[in-house]
Design a protein around this nucleic acid. Structure first.
Lengths: 164, 164
DNA sequence: TTACTTGCAAATGATTTGCACGTAT
DNA sequence: ATACGTGCAAATCATTTGCAAGTAA
């Protein structure tokens, strides 16, 4: 399912409003702020980290954790956001308004590096074709240790490893 | 860290015992049964599904859920098992005694096709290198519709989507 | 004998839900 | 006016942990 890639906030927001309308849902201040925060900070948020940021930037709204979760689920269901899963320790969300990419995830510090490779996609398509399989989406994560963490490794006290 | 690929149960089990010994851990009936169950059923288990099966096949042991979790974590830490993460709904574990492979998953019928591609792995390594990232593992899933299901598509009643 | 293990139940941490009040349409 | 949304607190679900009793070495 392809989403139109909106190039600016206005049209992105408008997409969001339409999605809400189409499902008989309302456009509220909370939903707008969550959406805008995701849009402005082109990053991967845990529900918790998003909650903290929204609290700080919009204390007057007194947003609850539950609303963050509800809005994120809403966005994901309507394909406007995607999440990557971190095992027991939850998920991270990002807006789906940018081109497809995959993730490298540092198991020590949680750093996420985005990448994309046309060559890999091409190989995937070839493999699928050979198996008579029609791909609708794929998931590719490289897990390991980032440069930083490798350099710090010696002086590191054992940290609990990030559960991916 | 490469694990030797044991070709039969005896040597696999022996690897397990060694891993235990090296960590000052004991070889118990519970640990043996969990290990053997994973070995005999070449499949992906959730802790829950493994628990249910072990309960059924070895009721005399009266195994507890906690032991399943503890043993799975043990196996994973010693690289004898690997897990793939399934979002909020947890993890699935499999023994690490067979060559690496990835999965194509049919979203209609749940069919899993295993595949592997040296070329993709090579590209992954190149990308990691470029980013100063040291890969310890990766996750690659192609999701879509298998041949069967495409052919049946017209007469198919909607089934609930498979939880990947 | 001396750790390490186990089952149980309680604790935890992330996420969801019920409810009474608030608010967009 | 009506239905949907919200914050709060309680509930839930998967997983972990403390503890007293059991068992491998």
């Amino acid at each position: 399912m392809k989403s139109k890639k909106s190039v600016n906030y206005k049209s992105s927001l408008s997409d969001f409003k339409n999605a809400l309308k189409q499902n008989g849902l309302k456009f509220t201040k909370q939903r707008e702020v969550v959406f805008k925060t995701l849009y402005d900070n082109d990053a991967h948020f845990t529900p918790e980290s998003l909650y903290v940021l929204v609290k700080k930037t919009h204390p007057e709204l007194n947003v609850g954790m539950a609303t963050i979760y509800r809005t994120l689920n809403l966005l994901e269901e309507s394909k406007m956001a995607t999440s990557i899963s971190f095992g027991v320790s939850g998920k991270k969300f990002e807006l789906a308004n940018k081109p497809h990419h995959d993730h490298m995830i540092c198991q020590s510090c949680g750093l996420i590096i985005e990448f994309s490779s046309e060559e890999i996609e091409k190989l995937q398509n070839e493999i699928a074709l050979k198996n008579n399989f029609e791909i609708t989406s794929h998931l590719l994560q490289l897990r390991g240790i980032c440069k930083q963490c490798r350099e710090n490794q010696t002086k590191n006290k054992k940290r609990e490893s990030i559960d991916i």
